[in-house]
């Protein structure tokens, strides 16, 4: 039974629900592994040398990137074959990635705030590695991480679309299509950096929309 909601809203809802399930597993595994590493370092070194949880950020960027890339190749043909428009697909995918980016950003900020409390309670320094500074204000941390994770997801969407459309030739476009998460991986929380990440991510969303609107739908893979 079809609902009265716009196609893009239904698509966004479906994609978000599917992503949230895998995201719950991602965070469960990361937090358990991070806690285990922290305990081992406490046992072996007396205290962890830096914030272990802050290293999850790399996964927070590239895991949604991978998921978004796979979603394009696995579902765009089903979406159009089911009689739905490319427009609803790409708008739904962008909205879903925004929601996932925010959920990831909130989760990352919460994990870091809790970790900071534990570190300070134990008398440890909640320091970051030089490659991974942590914003101390939770509001700045939230914005920084939301933008960072959004860059990964939307870049995955664009990379998926370029490979779907141009095949191996899309490799030539990688320096542009993966630019936002590459910048984000620098993990510099300066306002200018966040603004650049946000701008390139917005450009990624616009490029995805333009690319998807006329994309030819390939034949499904033949099986023997």
């Amino acid at each position: 039974m079809t609902s009265a909601a716009p196609l893009w809203a239904r698509t966004a809802g479906r994609m978000t629900r599917a992503s949230l399930v895998s995201l719950a597993w991602f965070w469960a595994v990361c937090v358990i592994a991070g806690t285990a590493v922290t305990l081992v370092l406490d046992w072996r070194l007396g205290e962890p040398p830096f914030s272990i949880m802050s290293t999850i950020r790399y996964g927070g960027i590239w895991y949604p990137f991978s998921v978004a890339l796979i979603v394009v190749s696995a579902t765009i043909n089903v979406h159009v074959a089911a009689g739905l428009t490319r427009r609803s697909f790409v708008i739904g995918a962008v909205i879903s990635n925004v929601v996932i980016g925010v959920v990831n950003g909130v989760a990352m900020t919460a994990v870091l705030v809790i970790e900071r409390g534990i570190y300070l309670d134990q008398g440890w320094s909640h320091a970051a590695t030089s490659a991974a500074p942590i914003p101390e204000a939770w509001g700045v941390s939230l914005v920084f991480h939301c933008v960072m994770f959004l860059a990964g997801g939307l870049s995955g969407l664009l990379v998926g679309l370029t490979y779907y459309r141009w095949g191996v030739w899309a490799t030539a476009a990688l320096p542009l299509t993966v630019l936002p998460p590459i910048i984000a991986s620098g993990l510099d929380p300066a306002a200018l950096t966040v603004a650049v990440i946000a701008a390139t991510t917005a450009a990624t969303a616009v490029a995805s929309y333009a690319l998807a609107r006329t994309i030819p739908i390939r034949k499904p893979l033949e099986i023997s």
Binding site: R10, T75, V78, A82, K219, P220
Partner: peptide, 27 residues
């Protein structure tokens, strides 16, 4: 408009219920 191609445009890694649900919500 429905075009059924030989190998099918379906969610191949899922059980058939997932694809049926997808098409039910779309058509």
């Amino acid at each position: 408009v429905s075009l059924i191609r030989e190998s099918g445009d379906v969610l191949t890694n899922e059980k058939i219920a997932a694809s049926l649900s997808y098409y039910e919500q779309a058509r």
